[in-house]
């Protein structure tokens, strides 16, 4: 089933960066993710390129296939069309930006095949 939209995507939500700084979700920049991952002991930032966007099994859901990192690991996630992803150098983007803006007041660009999203991996194998 698609991942529901969590409350922290609502405009005005307070996000704590890894260095303790607080920012509103709509003010986050690519550098905030990069710098937070740099000082994280557990998480490493990686790039995930959107390879396909298909209709999901539920209404208002989409299946997004990503190619992750240098090894191009394939990851498929089913989310609601309004679910925002953070695109490097661009910011929040969703498959249906109008709906994201309507529901969460978060301005979004349209997520497209070829967009490179922020993703995370664990720093080391356990």
């Amino acid at each position: 089933s698609p991942v529901a939209l969590p409350p922290f995507f609502m405009r005005g939500s307070i996000i704590q960066l890894a260095d303790g700084e607080l920012k509103r979700v709509e003010d986050l920049k690519t550098e905030d993710f990069i710098q937070s991952a740099e000082i994280s002991s557990e998480l490493k930032i990686d790039s995930s390129t959107v390879e396909r966007i298909d209709c999901g099994q539920s209404p208002n859901a989409v299946l997004i296939q990503f190619s992750v990192g240098e090894l191009k690991a394939q990851v498929c996630v089913e989310v609601l069309v309004e679910y925002p992803f953070f695109v490097f150098g661009q910011g929040w983007s969703s498959c249906c930006p109008d709906r994201t803006t309507q529901l969460f007041e978060l301005s979004c660009a349209k997520l497209c095949v070829g967009d490179v999203c922020v993703s995370l991996t664990l720093r080391s194998l356990r």
Binding site: I15, L17, V118
Partner: peptide, 19 residues
């Protein structure tokens, strides 16, 4: 006011890649 950690904004944890 709730405060959310930055990493909660990233929707999935990609598979760990071995070196």
């Amino acid at each position: 006011v709730p405060v959310f950690p930055w990493h909660s904004l990233v929707p999935f944890l990609a598979p760990t890649q071995s070196d």
